[in-house]
Design a protein around this nucleic acid. Structure first.
Lengths: 349, 349
DNA sequence: TGATGTTAAGAAAGCGGTTTCAAGTTATAA
DNA sequence: TTATAACTTGAAACCGCTTTCTTAACATCA
């Protein structure tokens, strides 16, 4: 069980081979101090000969810094989060820092454990994505380690939080449908126990009200961000026998589910029904028809988070920007000639 | 720049507080040896009081093992690879091992660098996914560190490689189309400079030949696994003015691109044209219509790889299973009444 | 009861680097 | 030419744990 693997050539072997001291080897390898060219060459040759790879673990311990930014995400098999991670890595590219990602797969206790793990690994900073850990615990950690929170506001730590307004995005989407002449706009919400779902829901309602339309409970179905619930939601709307010409889905996955629902009922998009999604997930540009949706600047978010984390490490202001959503207009929305007295009526099959 | 963060409470602080030696603290924390219950309690209390989190880096150095499996993937923002990673993590769940993933984003030099990084981090084993590094280099590494290669055969290391037959999957898909009465089956290939693309292409051709159909170059377009090339491929087929009733795409993304192409030309799927994809990526069950596709058992691949890596660490046979593809029949294929003299003819709008 | 075998627990030696410290060299200035 | 400053470089301490070595206390057996 506890076999050690203590064999690798060390800095001392190099020192031997090159006829210098270990300190010198270290200095050559790190370029941390001037070294006699001849010795430097000797060291480099020895490194070559013995195929020496410095032990990063030892380096980290010796230096007391790991040059690592820990990233905590809710789910690894998600392009959404991974796009942000890509952004973070882009932001780290020209620095000596690396990233270390941990995924909780939506399990709360796991999330906390992984957070502990990152701390135990002594990462130099932590970036969390839509985490759900108790705020007090997180604040505790933030006292010790530079922390950036994406997708979740932490009270007292506003400057270290980056949240793209869901409200605004949903408002934008709904507003757009209204402008295209839709007045009966259904909404399949995201999970309402997470802020994003709720905030998008609020944005939807506000846009309606601002246009003088009262949100109709009959047009609202609670979903959970999964395709399944989009499909199901359409079923619910149909069994309610309610009329609507457009649907705003809490995210693209549900939009796709809903779109399948319409397909099953023989309804054409956008001719018979318009759809707007949220997230612009990869593939949304290739749905039938290409989906109009709200895009969050994921890569930019990642880059900004990385920069902020670095700033924090250097004891500077995080300096997070305000980022906004963008409505990507594709082909899933049709303009309707507004006619308040003559809605089309859709009924199940 | 080189500010150290040498503050955290150590095992010695605990030892002090608890009135025991550091060794004892270690023994309590690791349950590695029996310790007097009173002292154990004292240690545990001290750990509580001082909110002690052992330094993982120091542990790793001290033990000479990191309890970490390094994973090298070509792209992080890909559900395909991440599903395998999930599998690996599942396979590691009940063990003391953790995973560390590194993504090269399809950059060859980066791939090699990351491999070096994993080695430098002294991971206990490495799992590579469809890597492209020079084989000799990889074999070199495999001599030092237990290595499992997924998606790529390494000569001389067959037992440590897990490759699900692309040939078989493609054969299966094509065969299915033939069985449903299709004889004019187009193929948009994957990137032909990677084995997967080529092997699927071969499987397609073989299935045709085995059915007495000669592959028609006019029906074949080279793609690159991206949606874009699927869309483009359909355009090419149309401008060729060639007739076909079915399309086998090298993967689901290209199938989606192609599907959009058909949509643009006003063709219905599957009524006018049948499609089969490859990979069963998430969302493929929710395309319009739901896509018939070839599934690779990704999670199982991951689990198997994890187990094999662990075996290797324990100096046992890797024991990788043979895993097969599965054809998921959904709704994108129609049966045609076979009529060799009366193909439908499709021409660009 | 004395000799021997077990055990618990502290001291100390790693692990493989980095960095401080001090000494030895060489360059600079007077 | 000599005193002094500026570098290079090796020795040694250190990072925070684990693990071996040793010793002291205690149990076992004849």
């Amino acid at each position: 069980m506890s076999k050690k693997r203590r064999n690798s050539t060390t800095i001392f072997d190099i020192a031997n081979e090159a006829g210098v001291s270990a300190s010198t080897v270290s200095r050559v390898l790190n370029n941390s101090m001037p070294v006699d060219p001849a010795k430097r060459a000797a060291v480099l040759k020895a490194v070559q000969n013995l195929n020496f790879k410095p032990n990063l673990v030892a380096q980290e311990l010796g230096r007391g810094r790991t040059m690592t930014i820990g990233i905590l995400i809710p789910q690894s098999a998600s392009i959404f989060y991974n796009t942000i991670i890509n952004g973070i890595e882009q932001g780290l590219e020209l620095t000596p820092y690396r990233s270390l990602v941990a995924s909780s797969n939506y399990r709360l206790e796991e999330e906390r454990k992984l957070l502990d793990l990152l701390v135990a690994r002594r990462v130099d900073a932590i970036v969390t994505l839509w985490n759900q850990v108790d705020e007090t615990y997180l604040l505790e950690i933030a006292k010790e380690i530079p922390l950036i929170s994406i997708g979740r506001k932490l009270s007292g730590l506003e400057k270290q939080c980056l949240v793209v307004s869901n409200f605004q995005g949903a408002y934008q989407a709904t507003r757009y449908l209204i402008e295209r002449g839709h007045t009966r706009i259904a909404h399949i919400t995201g999970a309402l126990n997470v802020p994003d779902g709720m905030q998008r829901f609020e944005g939807y309602k506000q846009a309606l009200r601002d246009a003088g339309l009262e949100p109709d409970p009959q047009l609202i179905v609670e979903g959970d961000f999964e395709e399944q619930s989009g499909l199901f939601g359409v079923g619910v709307l149909f069994t309610r026998g309610v009329r609507f010409t457009a649907l705003f889905a809490g995210n693209d996955m549900m939009a796709m589910g809903a779109r399948l629902g319409f397909y099953r009922h023989g309804m054409r998009v956008p001719d018979d029904i318009s759809i707007v999604g949220y997230d612009d997930q990869p593939g949304s540009a290739y749905t039938i028809p290409p989906l109009t949706t709200v895009r969050q600047p994921l890569t930019e978010i990642g880059i900004a988070a990385a920069q902020a984390a670095l700033n924090l490490i250097e004891n500077q202001e995080p300096n997070l920007p305000v980022l906004n959503t963008e409505l990507l207009i594709r082909e899933s929305v049709a303009t309707v000639v507004r006619n308040d007295f003559n809605y089309k009526v859709y009924s199940p099959s």
